Simulated assay, not measured.
Amino acid sequence: MSTRLEGTPAGAAEDPAAPAGGHHRHNRARLVRRERLSRWDLRLSPYLYISPFFILFGLVGLYPLIYTGYLSLYDWDRFYYQRGEFVGLENYRFVLGDPVFIKSLVNTFSIFLMSSVPQVVIAVTVAALLDNRLRGRTFWRMSVLLPFVVAPTAAVLIFGSLFADQYGVVNSALESLGLEPVRWHVDRWWSHLAIAGMVNWRWTGYNALIFLAAMQAVPRDLYESAALDGAGRVRQFFSVTLPMIRPTMIFVIVTSTIGGLQIFTEPRLFDDTPQREGGPDHQYMTSTLYIYVKGIEDQFYGRASAAAWVLFLIIVGIALLNFAITRFLTRRSA
C-alpha cells in the first residue's frame, strides 16, 4: 500500500532532505567565515590597539625629526622665513666648528653626570628604605613625589634663593662658617652643581617610585631563603634586590640619559642675565639651550636644525651604548 499522499509528486519523499542539506551547508559556510574573521582578528587586533600611539608619534615625533633634518640642509632667510639655497652639510660643519656649541656639549655632559648618576643611586636607596614596613608608609611614598609635582618655575625660584650670589641661603651659611661665598652664576662648575641639584631634587622621587614598584614585585620567598642562609639586609639588597630589578634599572638609566642630555628648563630659568643664554660666558649653556638660541632668538633655522640632529645622534649613540653595557653585565652575571 502506497503511503504517498494524493497530489504529491513522485520523488517528494527525498525533497525534505534537500533543504536540510542546503541549510547545513549554509551554516558550515558561516562557521568558516567566522573562523577566518577570528583568525584575522587575532592577527590584526594587537596592531590596531597600538596604532594610535604610532600614529601620534609619527605626527608629533617622527615627522618633526625628519623635517628638522630637511631644514638642516638649507640656508634659511631669517627675515622673510623662506627657504634659501641648498648648502648640504655646511650647517653641520659650522655647528661642529662653533666653540660655543662645543662648550654647550661639555656643559651638557657635566650637568648630566652630576645629576643622573647620583640620581639613580639615591633613588634606589630611597626605594629600598620605602620598601620596609614603615608607619604611615603611604604618606612617605607619596611625599617623595611632591618635588616632581612642583612646577619647574617654582623649583627654580626656590633654588634661586638658595644659590643666589649675593643673598643666597647657601652663601649665608658659608659666610657664617667663615668660608668664602660661591659665585654660583659665574663659576662654571659651581653653576653646574647648582643646576644638577635642581634636577636631582625634582626627579629623584619619581625614579624612586619606579624602583619601589619593581621591588614590590620581588617574591618575598627569596628574602626568606636568603635570611635562612644567614644573609643580612645589606647582603639581601645586593644579592637579591638589585639582580631582580635589573630590567627596571636599565629602563631608568636609559630614560635618565635621554632626559639628562636634553636639559633645558633649569639652565634657562637659572640664568639671571637679560639674554638668558646660559650665563655671560655661556658657562652653563646646554645643547638644547644652544638650539633654542640659534633657532628662536637668532633665527638661524638651518644651524639650529643641524645642532638638533647632532644632539639626537649623540643621544641615540649613548642610549645604545648604555643598553649594550647593561645587557653585557646582565648576561655575565647570569
Rank of each mutant, 00 (worst) to 15 (best):
K294Q: 15
I263Q: 12
I263H: 12
S104H: 01
F163N: 09
I315T: 02
A213K: 01
V87H: 01
W184S: 11
A306N: 00
I158A: 14
S143A: 05
R137F: 09
E180G: 10
L44T: 03
R331L: 05
S225F: 02
I325V: 07
N132A: 06
A123T: 12
A196R: 03
T204V: 03
I250S: 13
R327E: 08
L42F: 12
M1E: 14
D229G: 11
M198K: 03
I195H: 08
T108I: 01
D98M: 06
A307F: 07
F101E: 03
G178R: 06
Y63M: 03
A10E: 13
E277C: 08
L242I: 05
Y70P: 13
K103C: 04
R246H: 07
V100M: 07
A196V: 03
Q262K: 10
T255L: 00
V126H: 08
D131T: 00
V316F: 07
H185W: 11
T273A: 11
M285C: 08
Y47S: 01
V252W: 02
A194L: 05
W201A: 08
D229M: 03
G58W: 00
F94T: 11
L146I: 11
A226I: 00
P267R: 07
L261H: 00
I258C: 09
R183T: 14
G136R: 10
L174G: 12
G136F: 03
P219K: 03
V126T: 08
L37F: 10
L44D: 04
D229A: 13
V95F: 03
A10D: 14
Y49L: 06
I66N: 02
S72F: 02
T125W: 11
V186W: 03
N91Y: 01
Y284Q: 05
D75T: 07
F139R: 06
D229V: 01
R133Q: 12
V100A: 12
L37N: 15
D75H: 09
A304Y: 05
A208F: 06
V254S: 02
V156S: 14
P19D: 01
L129V: 07
R4M: 09
M244E: 13
